[in-house]
Design a protein around this nucleic acid. Structure first.
Length: 1272
RNA sequence: GGGCUCGUAGCUCAGUUGGUUAGAGCGCAUCCCUGAUAAGGAUGAAGUCAUAGGUUCGAAUCCUAUCGGGCCCA
């Protein structure tokens, strides 16, 4: 007995019961236990952040992450799944700021870092419950109880270990980076965040004069060597001879002019505030530049030659080109910038001088090379010998274009990435890096600092634009001013704050040194889709730049570097324990007191700001040597610096202390460290071994935006720490990694993951990005409650390849559910109903095999069991289809291709429902021999009799198929699979399932998820039968079309169909199935006709695939000649008889063979015929009286069945049928009494008016008939 | 602005190495069937394969450019 299914089956409700069942029996844990000795399949969970509600996109990721581990588990692997939470980063801080109603870093400091950080820990777990519920409800099996958490002490210390290793290998260093800076928030934003915040705004667009310094030195040289002739064209090499300032050798056109004439570079900018910090003017060395005479203002300008006309037109001035030159001729030309603050700066002569701002320190230091000069005249020594000016001269740059501006670009390296790179290039020419200062008149909070002109100090730079422009106009520097609309980024979290590009000191990891290793590693990764490997990801690796690691924020893994306050020398710390073991440790009390004051404070916070910052220790670097001033700034000192009086002297009485640098690190680094940090490697006991067993990983999957996030982080960090190159680098930490990389069982590449499925994004109902504002998507919970988790999962798996973006549409999910799950449910329910009616027993004495169905399966105790090969054709056919499907699905899943696998399952269920069950229905309905309709319960001692064998074959086959299917779909739709399994195999609904261990043995696990994945049995696959059945289905489909066109209902039996096949060999395939075709088409006879010219036209079509290569240019002509054949039927005969056909094409004759052409059939008009791919089917429309009578009988049965349904009678209920009507009709009914009573489960037919009750009056053809049924 | 990717029926998507007649499902319309009923079947309408060039005997497919969407980076 199978637990009867409810009248109204609800997927969501049944899923709830399955969830309870899993929980009650701890099925996930048992599925792991079961495979304890199996080979590992390593899965890494990319940690989500739980500070927001989970949305449909997260469901997709989690569905895919569940599918393959479930599959691998059923294939015998041990697939541990450790969850993780990403808890650090700016988004968390911003979320907390929002709650607190604060904004800037100052406000955070004011609020208190201690409390702030505590709030962050609370914020990141705000939605943990929702996340856990979603995870659970979706059926994503993952160990949430032992999740790794990136802010936990053991995790942080693991990350520290990695960073220390890199620091000691000189792979972690400090440098500058120009970032998109949110000044009000005091932080850099990630590219993604910047991308979100672009808006169209109107900004000033100004053309500015940079008057030239009429350099006497240069001019005299120019006179000696007027216009040097041919020069090499390569930018940098060209201009400067060794030891000479660049450009000095060449002569620029203006040097021929009268020195009293005003000559300027004309530059363009949209950010006037950056002019204060101007350092260079850049030209493209290979572009043409013109010296123009502006007749309107009687002055001279340099601009790019191609822009002379557009600019003249724009400003409505009359320009005259005096002469032209290459950009490289201008290199080294000096100019006067708009502001004097740096240009005119002079190093103080006084012994003690306090700089007004730390931003001046670089300039102050740079002037050390030429202490007596004003900055504009200062020179510093070059590597090549000689000296060059430290600024305010023309430099070469490849990035200069003619798209906008003047072809001469104002350079303020502190506020532009390319500007900054250019500064670095210039620096390369000098012996000392700091010979060229980074000029920066802006504080990190976006206000002008004390080095800026007095009227702008302390004000937000963008607010000063207008006044700066007015000043420049007043001073005659402004040449032209307008405004321009363009895209400019704003802070996406605080929409009124424009971002600025701003150079910050930052810590970098030298990833670029490992580019080759990355690529080698990438080479072995199996990417889906494939193009990621060489495309997006490969490109990213090839263009690798050093990882900017540090963040000037509060909530993140603290950078574990302590520096000597005196010497600036630094060292890295690998763990908290290591830190506490340092000599002269101080500051631990801060944490202890905080903990005492608030015992609930998470212990993990002690490795975080601000507590960790309080810990200092004695410097090991106090060797008495002089400090380097530049080193002092590395400790984040913003304090005033005095000449020759280093800050350290203040504490000279004490031993110098080691203090932590202030930064925290990029949270992507946290996530990328998870392969080892999730185990607390190497500090936690046993973690080295644990890690070694679980590295590298077999499978990860996240959405495409993780390419440069987690995917890169994982690969980069693992390669840096554990690759061959890492070993060669050598370090004291090497012993850790050798354990991993020397393990003979692990291949060195790829690491840290072997397969990566890159998912597309989930879109809203309208195909656009999901948006909380427009609410263009349904919440996951809504789908769970209305359609169920399986429906959502199936939609994700089956609707498209996982890497295309998918619309989250309720209707689409419902449709895919209907197509697969509902259809499958119908079959399942059909089986359930009739198996119970007939008392089919799947075999209770021996357990059902967990292995796939096959001749060896332990099912011999099932009612009427017979091995598959001895069963009927259709049973063998569906079993064969099942095993072909198993094979296909396994192969697809082994390649991590869920989409084709799901598609194949869908096709199988369609074949099962629309062919097997439909074709086999009457086998299930037929009464058991001698039962007189009363089904024998299995306990009445019923013994199968031979007459019933076909019925039991059908039950066995369908049961085997459904049972196997439940396992096959288990990784995809785990809930419904469980429901089916419990019902079919365990013989009950999940809620009634036997308790743990009870009635269970190795062959009958209590859950489908503890079963092995079905194996395909080649012996049961019959490819020939599959092809035949395919052909039959096509013929039947064609035949039905023919009936439709003749307007003959399928109920009406017909005398015969004729099948005309395009190819003779099809006939032999169909011969064995004529009975089936006859039944399906409700005809008495099936005939094959070969020469049927009266039914069909023949067409001889060119087969270009063969003709093309054979005839080349003649092929189209041969083709059209074939299409224009006068008598294709005759040509066909010739071809069939002789094997070849001569054809005249133009003036030549060609010979065609059978392979050169395609013969097609087309039904002639006037026949009830229809054509399909295989041929033409013609139905005979002639109705004999006998056929007509049969049709009437079927019509009658149809109405009776309608009545049964209308009365809601049980399927097996017996009735008495009352019929009245015309005598001739009743005669027919009498003749068919046997058929009617059997089909309608009628005990007898009364030809009398019924004794009351509902009477159905119908018209059957021309007969008025009254019908009534009464249950017996 | 650069890189990657996609653009095929009203919608969602297939379309293998180029082969002349571009498919499926859903939806729609008409009809049928109904003892699986949240079903099932048949037929039909619907496509300048984003656009423009090129290569080729032949292009949805290969090449180039353009337009549009997405993602990543500037």
């Amino acid at each position: 007995m199978f637990e009867p299914l409810p009248a109204k089956f609800s997927f969501p409700e049944s899923e709830q019961r399955v969830l309870e069942f899993w929980k009650k029996h701890d099925v996930f844990a048992r599925s792991l236990d079961l495979r304890r000795d199996g080979p590992r399949f390593v899965f890494y969970e990319g940690p989500p952040t739980a500070n927001g509600m989970p949305h449909p996109g997260h469901c997709l990721t989690r569905a895919i992450k569940d599918l393959f581990p479930r599959y691998k588990t059923m294939r015998g692997h041990l697939v541990e799944r450790k969850a993780g939470w990403d808890t650090h980063g700016l988004p968390v801080e911003v979320e907390v700021c929002k709650e607190l109603g604060i904004h800037s870093k100052e406000e955070i400091e004011e609020f208190g870092v201690e409390e702030f950080v505590k709030r962050c820990t609370e914020s990141v777990f705000r939605y943990t419950r929702e996340w856990e519920e979603m995870t659970d409800r979706l059926g994503f099996w993952i160990n949430l109880d032992e999740a790794y958490v990136t802010f936990h002490q053991s995790y942080v210390e693991s990350v520290w270990w990695g960073l220390k290793t890199l620091f000691e290998r000189d792979l972690l260093y400090q440098g500058h980076k120009v970032v998109w800076w949110w000044a009000q928030g005091g932080t850099a934003l990630s590219a993604g965040e910047v991308g979100e915040g672009y808006r169209t705004v109107e900004d000033p667009s100004v053309y500015i004069r940079f008057p030239l310094v009429r350099d006497a030195e240069r001019a005299s040289r120019a006179n000696e060597e007027p216009r040097a002739s041919a020069r090499p064209v390569q930018g940098n090499e060209s201009a400067a001879a060794p030891g000479e300032p660049r450009g000095l050798k060449s002569a620029a056109p203006h040097e021929q002019l009268d020195p009293s004439k005003p000559v300027s570079l004309l530059v363009w900018t949209t950010t006037p505030w950056t002019l204060v910090s101007n350092h260079f003017a850049a030209v493209h060395p290979l572009l043409d530049y013109a010296l123009v005479h502006d007749k309107t203002g009687d002055e001279y300008f340099y601009i790019a030659t191609d822009l002379v006309e557009p600019i003249a037109e724009k400003v409505k001035h009359e320009f005259e080109v005096v002469s032209t030159c290459r950009g490289e001729d201008l290199l080294g030309v000096r100019y006067v910038p708009p502001f004097d603050v740096y240009y005119g700066y002079r190093r103080s002569r006084s012994r003690v001088y306090v700089l007004p701002t730390p931003n001046l320190e670089p300039l102050y230091l740079a002037l050390g090379f030429d202490p007596d000069a004003r900055a504009c005249d200062a020179k510093a020594p070059l590597k090549s010998s000689g000296r060059d000016y430290i600024g305010w001269r023309v430099v070469p740059a490849e990035f200069v274009t003619l798209d906008t501006g003047t072809g001469i670009v104002h350079q303020a390296p502190a506020y532009g990435e390319v500007d900054f790179e250019l500064l670095q290039e210039e620096r390369e020419r000098f012996i000392e890096d700091h010979a060229l200062p980074l000029l920066n008149a802006v504080n990190p909070d976006g206000t002008f600092d004390a080095s800026a002109p007095a009227q702008y100090r302390g004000r937000w730079v963008k607010d000063c634009d207008k006044e700066i422009m007015r000043e420049l106009r007043d001073r005659g520097i402004m040449f032209h001013q307008e405004s321009v609309k363009h895209e400019y980024p704003f802070c996406p979290r605080s929409e009124d704050d424009p971002l600025i590009q701003y150079a910050r000191k930052s810590w970098f990891v030298r990833t670029s040194k490992f580019k080759e290793e990355f690529l080698k590693n990438n080479d072995g990764i199996y990417w889906l889709p494939e193009h990621i490997k060489e495309g997006r990801f490969g490109d990213f690796l090839r263009n690798n730049v050093d990882w900017a690691l540090s963040r000037e924020r509060y909530w993140g893994t603290p950078l574990p570097i302590w520096g000597c306050e005196k010497t600036g020398k630094m060292e890295a710390i690998g763990s908290y324990k290591e830190l506490l073991a340092k000599p002269g440790i101080q500051g631990t009390a801060v944490w202890e007191e905080a903990k005492k004051a608030d015992p609930d404070l998470p212990e993990h916070l002690k490795v975080h700001k601000p507590y960790i910052d309080a810990i200092t220790y004695d410097s090991p670097f106090d060797t008495g040597e002089e400090p380097r001033a530049s080193a002092r700034a590395d400790l984040g000192s913003e304090t005033v610096t005095a000449d020759e009086e280093p800050r350290g002297l203040k504490s000279a009485a004490h031993r110098p202390r080691m203090r932590r640098v202030p930064e925290v690190i990029d949270c992507w680094w946290d996530a990328g460290s998870m392969p080892f940090a999730q185990w607390g490697f190497p500090h936690v006991e046993g973690s080295v071994e644990t890690f070694a067993q679980r590295f590298p990983c077999d499978f990860i999957s996240e959405a495409i935006d993780q390419t440069r996030g987690w995917f890169y982080g994982l690969l980069a960090i693992s390669t840096l720490l554990f690759s061959t190159k890492a070993e060669q680098d050598g370090s004291q930490s090497r012993s850790w990694s050798t354990d991993i990389t020397h393990s003979p069982t692990k291949s060195r590449y790829p690491m840290p993951y072997k397969t990566c499925i890159v998912l597309g994004h989930v879109m809203g109902e309208d195909g656009l990005k999901m948006s909380k504002r427009t609410k263009n998507f349904k919440e996951p919970d809504y789908i769970f409650d209305h359609l169920g988790a399986d429906a959502m999962r199936w939609y994700f798996f089956s609707a498209q390849t996982p890497w295309t973006s998918v619309r989250f549409q309720e209707n689409a999910i419902r449709d895919s559910q209907r197509e697969f799950l509902v259809r499958l449910y119908n079959v399942f329910s059909f089986f359930n109903i009739y198996a119970n009616i007939d008392g089919f027993d799947p075999g209770t004495e021996g357990p059902v095999s967990t292995q796939s169905v096959g001749p060896v399966s332990n099912r011999s105790t099932a009612t009427g069991y017979k091995p598959v090969p001895q069963r009927s054709q259709i049973d063998r056919w569906i079993t064969s289809e099942l095993h072909r499907t198993i094979k296909f699905v396994r192969e697809a899943l082994d390649r991590f291709e869920n989409y084709p696998a799901a598609g194949r399952l869908n096709e199988f269920v369609d074949a099962l429902s629309n062919w097997y069950v439909r074709r086999s229905r009457d086998r299930f309905w037929r009464p058991l021999e001698g039962s007189v309709g009363v089904p024998p319960a299995s306990d009445t001692g019923y013994k199968p009799v031979p007459q019933d064998q076909d019925k039991w074959d059908a039950y066995n086959t369908l049961h085997e198929v459904l049972m196997t299917l439940s396992k096959l779909i288990a990784p995809f739709t785990p809930f419904f699979a469980e429901t089916m399994y419990q019902n079919l195999v365990r013989g009950q609904g999940v809620e009634g399932a036997r308790g743990q261990g009870e009635g269970e043995d190795s062959l009958c696990p209590i859950s489908v998820h503890l079963c092995d994945y079905p194996e395909s049995d080649e012996a049961l696959i019959d490819e020939t039968l599959a092809r035949e059945m395919d052909l039959v289905r096509q013929v039947v489909s064609t035949g039905r079309a023919a009936r439709t066109s003749a307007k003959l209902k399928v109920r009406q039996p017909l005398a015969r169909v004729e099948i005309i096949l395009a190819w003779k060999e099809y006939e032999s395939r169909l011969q064995a199935h004529t009975g089936l075709i006859a039944e399906e088409l409700n005809v008495k006879n099936v005939e094959f006709t070969h020469e049927a010219d009266h039914y069909v036209h023949y067409q001889i079509k060119p087969n270009f695939k063969v003709l093309g290569p054979k005839f080349g240019k003649l092929a189209p002509k041969v083709g059209s000649a074939l299409n224009k054949l006068d008598d294709p039927a005759a040509a066909r005969k010739t071809l069939l008889a002789d094997g070849e056909l001569a054809l005249t094409v133009g003036d030549q004759t060609v010979t065609l063979t059978k392979d050169d052409v395609d013969i097609r059939l087309e039904a002639k008009e006037g026949w009830s015929a229809s054509q399909g791919r295989v041929g033409v089917v013609v139905v005979s429309t002639e109705l004999t009286p006998k056929l007509r009578e049969e049709g009437l009988m079927r019509e009658l049965i149809h109405h009776v069945q309608g009545l049964r349904k209308q009365r809601d009678l049980a399927y097996e209920a017996r009735v008495t049928l009352y019929v009245t009507g015309p005598g001739d009709f009743l005669d027919i009914v009498r003749r068919f009494t046997d058929t009617i009573t059997s089909e309608c489960l009628a005990e007898r037919i009364e030809f009398a008016a019924p004794p009351g009750g509902d009477v159905l009056a119908v018209k059957i053809e021309r007969h008025e008939v009254k019908l009534t049924i009464q249950p017996v």
